[in-house]
Simulated assay, not measured.
Amino acid sequence: MPAALALLREGRLAVHGRLTDASNAVLYCTVALDGVTAPCVYKPVAGERPLWDFPDGTLAGREAAAYEVSAATGWALVPPTVLRDGPHGPGMVQLWVEPDPDAPELLDLQDPDAPAPGWLPIVRAEIEDGRTALLVHRDDDRLRRLAVLDAVLNNADRKGGHWIPAADGRIYGIDHGVTFNTDGKLRTLLWGWAGQPLTAEAREVLGRLAADLDGPLGGRLAPHLTPAELDAARHRTAALLRTGSHPLPSAQWPSIPWPPL
């Protein structure tokens, strides 16, 4: 990862196009350094759409902070991400992850009464002709780790399109601009483990993360978050360790992102 981060930080960015289905400006680029070239995504701060519940101009920094937390877990769930200057000013630059076209589906619509073996329920959904179906996700350890990370980040937008199964067998989470709010805003499709005990692996990772948030990781997050937001991340991590279980949906905040996919 150090080589990838150096490439993203120091390489020359060339913009090739814009991803038009995103709500903020998302530019497809290549970054080149010392004969190495890689595809990447560049999200300039100038292209961020103002939000009522997040300070203007902070989404790119939150994406960089989400990468730092992911890296600290050792799970490598977020592609290498940096905050740097670019052709359209400062912004987030993230290594591009190509989806594996042969990866099995991670979401499905199934019989409304019960999920099939190996699947976990999210919510009942209305489909065509007024019929209902059960929206489910796979009971997959990679997604479960992502659910734990989202609980720490307070991710308000874990849509089905915000994870990418890659050819290396990993699942990468992307689009972490609306994270780290001091208010509880967890919105996700990964509710299949809600209320269930955390795995031993997750408890071990969270224990290390709690210590790191008071040490070097906290220092790396400080340029991107307010002191209150950093404290809230510490409190969320401590609460996960205290309860020993995945969080439940909030009654005060919509628990499913919209649109979900």
Score class of each variant (00 low, 15 high):
Pro2Gln: 14
Ala3Tyr: 08
Ala3Val: 13
Ala6Phe: 12
Leu7Thr: 08
Leu8His: 08
Arg9Thr: 11
Glu10Tyr: 10
Gly11Glu: 04
Arg12Thr: 15
Arg12Asn: 09
Ala14Pro: 06
Gly17Ile: 08
Thr20Tyr: 14
Thr20Asn: 14
Thr20Lys: 13
Asp21Ala: 12
Tyr28Thr: 15
Tyr28Pro: 07
Thr30Phe: 11
Leu33Thr: 11
Thr37Arg: 14
Lys43Leu: 01
Pro44Glu: 14
Pro44Val: 12
Pro44Gln: 14
Val45Glu: 13
Ala46His: 14
Arg49Phe: 06
Pro50His: 09
Asp53His: 13
Asp53Val: 13
Pro55Ile: 07
Asp56Leu: 08
Gly57Lys: 07
Gly57Ala: 08
Ala60Arg: 06
Arg62Cys: 06
Arg62Ile: 05
Ala65Ile: 13
Ala66Glu: 09
Tyr67Ser: 04
Tyr67Trp: 15
Tyr67Ala: 04
Ser70Arg: 06
Thr73Met: 13
Thr73Ser: 13
Trp75Asn: 06
Ala76Leu: 12
Val78His: 00
Pro79Ser: 11
Thr81Gln: 06
Thr81His: 04
Thr81Ile: 08
Arg84Ile: 06
Asp85Asn: 13
Asp85Cys: 06
Gly86Phe: 03
His88Tyr: 14
Gly89Thr: 10
Pro90Trp: 08
Gln94Ser: 12
Pro99Arg: 13
Asp100Phe: 01
Asp102His: 14
Ala103Pro: 11
Pro104Asp: 10
Glu105His: 10
Val123His: 12
Val123Lys: 11
Arg124Phe: 00
Ala125His: 10
Ile127Gln: 02
Ile127Pro: 00
Ile127Val: 15
Glu128His: 14
Arg131Leu: 12
Ala133Asp: 01
Leu134Asp: 05
His137Gln: 01
Arg138Ser: 04
Asp139Tyr: 02
Asp140Val: 03
Asp140Asn: 04
Asp141Glu: 15
Leu143Glu: 01
Arg144Ile: 02
Arg145Pro: 02
Arg145His: 10
Ala147His: 00
Leu149Arg: 00
Asp150Pro: 02
Asn155Ala: 02
Asp157Thr: 09
Gly161Pro: 03
Gly161Thr: 09
Gly161Ser: 08
Ile164Phe: 02
Pro165His: 04
Ala167Lys: 11
Asp168Lys: 10
Asp168Ala: 10
Arg170Ala: 12
Asp175Gln: 08
Val178Pro: 03
Thr179His: 09
Phe180Val: 07
Thr182Val: 15
Thr182Gln: 10
Asp183Trp: 11
Asp183Val: 13
Lys185Pro: 07
Lys185Ile: 11
Thr188Cys: 05
Gly195Glu: 11
Gln196Cys: 05
Gln196Gly: 10
Leu198Lys: 07
Arg203Leu: 11
Glu204Leu: 11
Glu204Ser: 15
Val205Ile: 15
Leu206Asn: 10
Leu206His: 06
Gly207Ala: 11
Arg208Ser: 12
Arg208Met: 10
Ala210His: 09
Leu213Asp: 06
Asp214Trp: 10
Pro216Glu: 14
Leu217Lys: 01
Gly218Val: 06
Gly219Tyr: 03
Ala222Phe: 09
Ala222Thr: 15
Pro223Ser: 03
Pro223Thr: 00
His224Tyr: 14
His224Asn: 04
His224Lys: 03
Pro227Asp: 03
Leu230Arg: 01
His235Thr: 13
Arg236Gly: 02
Thr237Glu: 01
Leu240Lys: 00
Leu240Val: 00
Leu241Gly: 00
Arg242Asn: 04
Thr243Ala: 06
His246Met: 07
Pro247Phe: 01
Pro247Arg: 04
Ser250Arg: 12
Pro254Gln: 05
Ser255Val: 04
Trp258Asn: 10
Pro259Asn: 05
Leu261Thr: 13
